[in-house]
């Protein structure tokens, strides 16, 4: 049985390591999107620029929501590690709500742009904006899905080792998305007004 536990621990460590490697690949994917944004953001073909379109308060709200959610996510993981089921659920519940609010603000921004005729097809600047920010949003969405399902399983099965491990990976993923967002906030939104 000791052997079996060592086997499990080694597997855990490998998965964590592998997940880090995966996050690096995801970071590279984002780096291409950032690169394309920095190459193309001036190419508006006479259309409005980022300065004309973006509203900083909205981006700031999004940033605060995501930063707070990262904090509650961390608290949730701590609770899970000390095997407090309800505390874990509450913390991740708050994280989920904050993430969903972030996503709804982003959707709001996108819808406004599209309604004012500023779409992916308009010019290279908007193509790169929508794809960069949208890809982040898509990651947030999958993070939320993952969070929701994991919470469902915690409700059903209670906290077990496998689920805590999943939460650890999830929170790593969530912090990673937070960092990517900080770059988006700085480069896309603050950059437009610099």
């Amino acid at each position: 049985m000791v052997n079996h536990e060592a086997h499990e621990a080694a597997a855990d460590e490998r998965v964590m390591f592998g997940f880090w490697v995966y996050l690096m690949t995801d970071l590279l994917l984002f780096s291409v999107l950032f690169a394309s944004y920095s190459v193309l953001h001036g190419n508006t073909v006479g259309g409005p620029t980022g300065r004309d379109l973006f509203t900083l308060p909205l981006a700031l709200q999004e940033t605060i929501l995501l930063l707070t959610s990262s904090f509650t996510c961390g608290l949730g993981l701590l609770a899970a590690r000390s095997n407090k089921k309800w505390q874990t659920l509450i913390c991740f519940g708050i994280t989920f709500i904050l993430g969903a609010l972030f996503l709804s603000l982003e959707m709001k921004e996108f819808t406004e742009f599209i309604h004012s005729g500023q779409t992916l097809q308009t010019n290279a600047f908007l193509s790169s904006f929508f794809v960069l920010v949208g890809t982040h949003g898509l990651h947030i969405t999958s993070g939320l899905l993952w969070m929701g399902v994991t919470m469902g399983y915690i409700l059903k099965r209670g906290l077990n080792k496998a689920l805590v491990r999943k939460l650890a990976l999830l929170s790593l993923f969530w912090h990673f998305l937070d960092i990517v967002w900080i770059f988006i906030f700085t480069i896309v939104y603050l950059g437009a007004f610099a």
Partner: peptide, 12 residues
């Protein structure tokens, strides 16, 4: 219909 690599529309 995005414009990342198109000749027209500001792509590169």
């Amino acid at each position: 219909g995005a414009h990342f690599f198109t000749a027209l529309g500001g792509g590169d």
